[in-house]
């Protein structure tokens, strides 16, 4: 079990999303940075979909009530355990009574905290993700509050094995990090003025030539009206060559649509299921984790990628994640 001593700015329980109910208007939700979520689970011996804590910009203070494994993946929010800085993207054995805190946001704005066993909350429509606007899922349907006590599910055999190995390296410390880490190519480098790769959207050709050019050549600010649902961007206003009537249709994670005021909106985890604005672009899936780390005040720019390239990059990245899974299994067998 863990206790939330301080909740932080916005801390919610997320998994990989609520699928199968979009035809009823139910949003997918789930982790904003799905790669950080998946890796944080793999590092503590969980299934990739197990619920993690998604931490935003100002992190919480969390006390651990038993010896366990944790991993901190995503943006760098200066994590520390019992006052000592702690590494990200690693398996960490932490002793009962320890407290995890976060400090300044040095890069990115979101962290996924994986805990061995995963956080124990009930499923709603087959997912444990918190959907704030409808008040469903996660811990009582809302963000984590001070004093919340959250149980964890029983830990896997893999996690038990990892704990056994790490315990041997433990002397008088209250925590110990695994010596091995994941391949650096899986760890994205978050920076301001990030270039995001984007495919042309299905309505790209309906935009004026100057708007098409501006979309791929100018800078956009991530405005303060940005949240888990979408980022509202400010920059050169984009417009259609001539107005058209559009019928609402499905949208996806990373769809960039342009309402009549000309300011693009990038749809993210808590997006509505359908939208009626023209789609100028679609963020390449491999760059969604980078985008999820952008915060209000950051600027981003778009560069074009073809649909074919985007698919190839996605398959390459997925093969790397599969290799990581294999590598974790091998590490365990070495210890036999």
């Amino acid at each position: 079990m863990i206790t939330i001593k301080k909740p932080g700015l916005l801390t919610t329980i997320q998994d990989l999303g609520r699928y199968g109910f979009q035809k009823y208007g139910v949003v997918v939700g789930g982790a904003m940075d799905t790669v950080a979520h998946r890796i944080s689970n793999l590092l503590v011996g969980n299934e990739e979909n197990a619920p993690t804590l998604e931490i935003t910009l100002m992190g919480p203070h969390i006390e651990f009530h038993e010896d366990t494994l944790l991993s901190i993946c995503g943006g760098d929010l200066s994590p520390s355990i019992n006052g000592e800085p702690v590494s990200m993207w690693k398996t960490i054995y932490v002793k009962k009574g320890s407290e995890l805190r976060f400090g300044a946001a040095k890069g990115g704005c979101r962290v996924n905290l994986g805990v061995a066993g995963g956080l124990a909350v009930p499923s709603v429509m087959e997912s444990k993700s918190t959907y704030l606007k409808a008040g469903i899922g996660g811990f009582n349907g809302g963000a984590i509050k001070q004093g919340d006590k959250i149980s964890t599910d029983s830990i896997s055999g893999v996690a038990q094995h990892m704990m056994g190995q790490l315990k041997k390296d433990m002397r008088n410390q209250t925590f110990v990090e695994a010596e091995w880490s994941i391949a650096s190519e899986l760890i994205p480098a978050f920076k301001n003025d990030q270039v995001i790769r984007v495919m042309k959207g299905r309505h790209y050709s309906l935009f004026s030539t100057s708007s098409q050019n501006a979309f791929f050549s100018s800078c956009f600010d991530v405005s303060a009206q940005s949240d888990r649902m979408g980022y509202r961007l400010k920059g050169v206003p984009l417009s259609l060559a001539q107005p058209i009537d559009m019928l609402s249709e499905a949208v996806s994670f990373g769809t960039i649509q342009v309402p009549s005021d000309g300011n693009p909106i990038i749809l993210l985890a808590d997006r509505q299921t359908t939208g009626g604005y023209p789609k100028i672009g679609q963020v390449a899936a491999v760059d969604l984790p980078l985008l999820a780390q952008a915060k209000p005040g950051d600027t981003i720019r778009f560069t074009e990628i073809t649909h074919e390239e985007a698919q190839i990059l996605l398959l390459q990245k997925e093969r790397k994640i599969q290799l990581l899974k294999k590598a974790i299994e091998l590490k365990l067998n070495e210890g036999e």
Partner: peptide, 21 residues
């Protein structure tokens, strides 16, 4: 197939590329 969304003049099919890999 993951799921589908019917709309006014479209049906959108969501798929999992990992299951096709």
């Amino acid at each position: 197939m993951v799921e589908y969304i019917p709309a006014f003049s479209t049906v959108t099919i969501f798929y999992n590329p990992l299951k096709i890999m």
